[in-house]
Amino acid sequence: MRKRFALSRLADVAANDMLPRAQRLLLGARQSLADYGRELVGEDFEERTRLLRQRYERQGGDPFGLDPETAKYLIIACSFFHRKYFRTEVHGLETLPEGRVLIVANHSGQLPLDGAIIGSALFLDLHPPRIIRAMVEKWAHSLPFVSTFFSRVGQVVGVPENARRLLELEETLLVFPEGTRGISKPFNQRYQLSEFGLGFMRLAIETNTPIVPVGVIGAEEQYINLGNVQWMARALKMPVFPLVPQWFIPGAQLPLPTKYRLYFGEPMRFDGDADDDDAVIEEKVWVVRQTIQSLLHRGLRERKSIFF
């Protein structure tokens, strides 16, 4: 029956024709989004989350406040960078020992995306999955939302007691012994390791933890840092002020889509006295540093292109 008013005809068309079509479209979009999500994080993502949840439930919950259900969403966000943006290649992950591990990596890239990518690799490419634990600056834990977020995704306040406790709980701890010196290296010093701190070695000896060295290739080129402006850093009371031209171009704040390559080395065990003189500890640290440097050399040799 033909409707008399234009408006009611329109309503008719909308209800009988357009609405199902829109529903189909929406369903399709949701489906493809889900497919895309599955493609990103893998078929067994829920299974992985469940395994982790069980692990922490057995302990009566993580005492630092990690919640696998919240961490899951961060992993999904990171997986886009891990799988699509940086298309990470992971080497040597199969030699990662069980139980407590101290992962020591070179730090680079102006923003700590290297940590996020190592974390994604351990969650998505390892079986059983692990959640990486790292130490965060103390002031971050005084900020609303930020402090809660960090603690739910497993990142803890940066004090030595926490590192010790995490290893005693058989967690996987990530440290960057180069610290800010490493992450804000200018472009002309790329892949040259700066000085290592000694704390991680004392920690590993004290808690009898194997060290797994990791070489991260690709992060150095994600932001081109022309140099650190010291007076600017002093004026803004920041640890460093890197001069990254890209950051001043509107819309170009994302890192360059380099290809990330992670090289996990064989686990290294050290013994001796954790309270030994600096000179003795330095020798052991030197061994780790050389191992990471040679992983970096190997990675750079094998790499044909920065972006592919």
Binding site: P63, F64, K138, W139, H141, S142, S147, V156, V157, V159, E161, N162, R165
Partner: peptide, 9 residues
């Protein structure tokens, strides 16, 4: 305090 270790001895 924000800079407390998670477990204080």
């Amino acid at each position: 305090r924000p800079d407390n270790a998670q477990f204080l001895g």
